[in-house]
Each structure stands twice: as C-alpha cells, then as structure tokens.
Design a protein around this nucleic acid. Structure first.
Lengths: 319, 319
DNA sequence: CGCAGACTTGACAGTACTCAACCAAAGTGG
DNA sequence: CCACTTTGGTTGAGTACTGTCAAGTCTGCG
C-alpha cells in the first residue's frame, strides 16, 4: 500500500526510506516537521532487509494488472538496496545484469562521451526504471548517480525475462515500459529541437510538478534536487541561462525561486509557454494545413510580459 | 541472401524492390545505369506477393541467432507491403497493431505536437524497425512517411509476442532492439544538447555515411532523400542554417554538395568536428577529472578554417 | 573565520534565427 | 515548346537569444 496520498501541499523531498533527512537537509528544514511519520512506501522486512514481490514491483511501475492476475501469487522476492547521496548505482561500460526500480529518492543518469563531456539524460525518481540502456550491448551505456538517499529494487534481468515466460502479462508490461521510455525520449528530442530557453525551463518545471503530483507530493512547492548546471545539461542550456530564466519567471510572478526551492504560482502560464524561436518546426503538410489553420504562439520576449494573461488569452494565428 | 555487398562506390539510392527507379529519378540519373540488375534483398514470391520468414526478419534486424537456432525452422510468414513516395505508413493516434521492418527504401518519422509543429524523429532505412512507440499507449505516437518507394515487412505485434513465447531467443532480441533504439535516442539528445550547428550537420552526414556503408552502398557519395527543412527539423536547426553549413563544409573542401548529392571528401575531419558552443557539458566530476585531464576541442569558427589539418592535428587540452 | 561550491547578475560577443530576395528544377497548361 | 507556378535551395543583412567571461553573493562546512 502507498501512503503518499495522505500528504499534500507539503514538500516531501527530504524524506526517504528510513525517515532520515536527506542531503541537503538545510534547505528543506521548513518542511521537514510534518514528514517524520511517513514510512517506507513499498517493501517488507525480512532478515533485516527490504524485499518486494513481483506484484509490488508492477504496482510501483504503474503496470496495470488484471484483477485476478496470477502475478499476484508469484512468490519470488526482489531485494532493495540503499544508496547515499553521490553514490553511483552503475557506471558506463560496466557489465549489465540488473535493472533497478526506484522506490524512493532522486537520481540522475549521465552520458559521458569520448571527450569527457557529460550529458544528463534523466532525473529518475520513484516508479522509474533504470538500466534499460544496458540490455542491448550487455554493458551500461550511461551511469546513474544518487542525488539523494535512495531506495532501489534490484531486478536481475535474467530473472525478469524468465518470469516473463511464465507470465505473458509481465512480458507485455516490459515492452510497454520500454516503449513508454522511448516516447519520453522522443518528447525530449522534440523539446530540444524546438523550444527556446524559456520554454525549456518552463517545461522542465511543469514536468517536475506533474511528477510530484503523481507521487502524491506537492505540485506547487518543491525542492530541486539538482544543480543549475545539471538542469542546464538536461535541457541543453548553460547554467547561467537557467539561472537567468528562473529569475525572469520569478520576476513576472509565475514562480517563486529561492535557491533550490521552487514555488509554482501560475502553472497554466508555464504550460502554455512554448515560444518558438523560429518557424522551423511548423508543419507545412498540405493535407493537414488545409483542414485547419494551425495556430502558433508569436515570438515574444519573456522580459516584456508582465502577466500571464498574454498567453492565457489564447493563441493568435500567424499570417 | 543479401546482394548488397556486391556493389561499392555507387549510389544505390534510387533502387528499390522491383528495380524501378525511385522518385526523384532525375537527380540520380548519373548513377542509375549500374543498378538495374540488383534484385530484391530479402523475401520470396508467393501468390504474387513477397513474404519473409522469421529468420529473414531476424537477419534483416541484425539479430545474432545461435547457429542452430530453432527460429530457422519457424515457418510462419510475414507479408511485405510496398509504399510509394509520400505515402503514410501509419498516422498519429491510429490504433497500434503492427511493427514494420524496412526492407528497402527511405522514410521519415514525424512527431506533431498540439500546436501543429512537426519534428522529425528519425530517417528509417533498411534494417530499421518502425512503430515501437505505439506499444505503450496502443496508439502510434508518431507518423511514418515514405521518402522513396519502400518495401516494408509487416509484423503483427501480437503474433510477434506469441512467437517470443516459443522462442526465448526472439524475446531477448526484441528487448535488445528496443534498447538499441533507446541508446540511439540518448545519443541524439546528447547531440542536440551539446553540439554547434556545424557539429550537428557533420555528425548527420557521418551517420548517414556509416549507415550506407553498413548497407553496402557507397559511403563516399550519396543522395539525401530529405529536404533541408527536414534535416533541420531532425537536428534542431533552421533550413537556412543547414544550407549555409553545407555550403561552408563544401567551401573548405570536406564535402562536395550539389543539391541532394553529397560527396564526403574528408570523413575524418567531419568525425572530429564537434565544436562545443560552451563548457556546459564538460564533466567536472572530480573522481574522473583527477585520473585524466579531458581534452576539449577549442571553439573555432568553421569559416576561418581552410583545411582539415586543424582538426586532424589532434586535440588540444584546454586550460 | 575562511574556503569551496552553488548561484546570481552584468557586460559583451557570436552563433544561429528571421526576413527577404533570388535562383534552379520540375511540373502545368496553353 | 515555352511562359508560369510551385517547391526546394542558396545567400545576404540584420537581429536577438543565449553563450562566454567575470565579478560578486550566499550557504554550508571544516
């Protein structure tokens, strides 16, 4: 059972398995009082360690099982492992054998190319699956690092595929999860290819907010677990531009920023902010264009907007 | 059997199943003479249609099967379907039930967001798998369009998963292919986040060249099947910037451009061109940085380089 | 208390976008 | 066969967004 729906409008970021305060504790102090009682979200004790069964894992991954699924009776257990802030879960080039499901905590996955440039690929959190990129080459192609204390469930890939053979439902679920990940990355590519700095930062915040809402945390006020540098790498901007853009969004009142603490004040405005730096991505396909003239939000500089009304007032068609 | 290794240094783009010349025929005329005799790469006739068995499909997807794999004896057949230039293979929102393997021809996959902006996600060609993005939501999340006459193999997803149950090897292969696709998209994200316009165009050309080499076509001279607009959408640039960059690469002698015909003249230089617009992506992780100082190619403007020596002379460490 | 790392902010510069004119190739229709 | 149109491509001028460099602040920590 998940307890996370019991709380709302409260920042739960500094809470992880075991209830200890995560790094950096300080910036979350204002919120931490109400959290102490929240307990581990999934997994049961056994021999002093946490274990989850297949059904737990499926629920965590948001895989819909048919009500009378035989998976519920599968007895094999998966071990939990705890990582401290900064610890690596896996490294690039390391032989692949495990998938990891995040039970609690925050991480980053990083790609490092031949020149030593690092690129953040994702910020996995509860319910996310890690390590899928290792299946193909049998070696992890990215590394995963804990940004907070984390509780991960170890899924030996061999064991999973074996189980997939006895539970066709599970097999389909695995395809589905991988497909979901692919779609997510496609959306990322699309964003990087088409959005301005403001649009990227806004989307980043919105997606975080959505994720937190999904986890039962506050969608209005939360702490960033990552540095500006890491955000910048993730959304393809410099840390300075990220900082400036956050300041600009603060300035116009859509959010409130204090170091790592973010308060969303106008989610609607953030959602609709997708200024196109150019017309490059405009669909020109006639068969589509004929049916309905598409509306494009005009290019505008954030600094000159003083309220969200501009975007909320609707989309103006372009000539 | 694949015949494609029989030819080299020859543009085979305008050749597809059946041997007819593809659109646009004109720009390939100089090359077409030597192609007429090349026949269909995979598939056998039956009832006037082309069919492939599971083994054919696995070979096409470059899935290594154990020598005595039982898959070789699987008798079920997969039908081929032909598409003409401009035809849609599937559309966004259409119910998902098929995967497609490209046997010949060139395509594009496109994402169209709520505002009608189109984003090219990939340019599938022989050996590529299409439609994987539909598994998760049961609806295709992108659309695929033929950029030339295409011969695709239809793979009903239900049938495939059923076969996966009898051939565990196949199941693993499917995970592997999906994982491969994921890694490819990660590389794309990394590129969009870190490379300058020149680096993007150079990489695009190199990756095309590599693909063609893999297919047994010329890696030196080939035709682009897509417009500048589509290239730009794919690599996150405007069509003007793509055009200008191609001209610049031509200018300095690394390639030769004539409309859609590209000749690679210095693949090494293109491969090493990855100017960083900034230091954002530089790995700062101390545990790594201590072991070896990473080398970064200094920022330089293409226009001021007159030969490839600059890049070939090696990478200079930065301060 | 001083240092290190993260963050903010300013000044400046350069890459890449926008707008626009022009050109080439291919298709259309008289 | 040749104007005319359409589509795709090239190139130029100007601009603006975002990267670069740098100074300075804040926080946490030794």
């Amino acid at each position: 059972m998940f307890l996370n729906k019991m709380v709302s409008e409260v920042n739960l970021f500094n809470k992880t398995g075991g209830g200890e305060i995560m790094f950096p504790a300080k910036s979350n102090e204002v919120f931490s009082d109400s959290l102490k009682s929240v307990s581990q979200e999934a997994g049961r004790q056994k021999n002093g360690k946490l274990w989850s069964n297949l059904k737990d894992v499926c629920e965590l991954l948001r895989i819909q099982l048919s009500p009378n699924s035989s998976i519920a009776s599968e007895e094999s257990l998966f071990q939990h492992v705890q990582f401290k802030t900064g610890q690596r879960i896996h490294m690039i080039g390391q032989p692949f054998e495990m998938l990891y499901v995040v039970n609690s905590g925050f991480l980053k996955t990083v790609l490092i190319d031949e020149l030593g440039n690092e690129q953040i690929l994702s910020f996995p959190m509860k319910s996310d699956l890690l390590g899928v990129d290792g299946i193909h080459s049998k070696f992890y192609s990215s590394e995963a690092v804990a940004l907070s204390a984390c509780d991960l469930i170890l899924i030996p890939f061999k064991k999973l595929t074996a189980l997939g053979r006895t539970y066709p439902e599970l097999e389909n679920a695995m395809y589905s999860v991988m497909s979901r990940e692919l779609v997510r990355e496609q959306a990322m590519i699309s964003m990087l290819g088409s959005l301005s700095a403001e649009g990227r930062v806004a989307r980043f915040l919105v997606s975080l907010s959505d994720r937190f809402a999904q986890m039962g945390y506050s969608h209005r006020i939360f702490n960033l677990r990552m540095t500006r540098h890491e955000i910048g790498s993730y959304i393809g901007l410099t840390l300075e531009t990220v900082s400036r853009t956050l300041s600009a969004l603060h300035e116009i009142g859509w959010i409130s920023v204090d170091q790592k603490t973010i308060e969303i004040k106008d989610i609607h405005a953030l959602r609709n902010l997708r200024r196109l730096p150019n017309a490059r991505t405009r669909a020109k396909d006639k068969s589509r264009a004929k049916t309905a003239e598409k509306t494009i939000i005009p290019a505008t500089n954030l600094k000159h907007i003083s309220s969200s009304e501009y975007y909320e007032s609707g989309l103006r068609p372009t000539a």
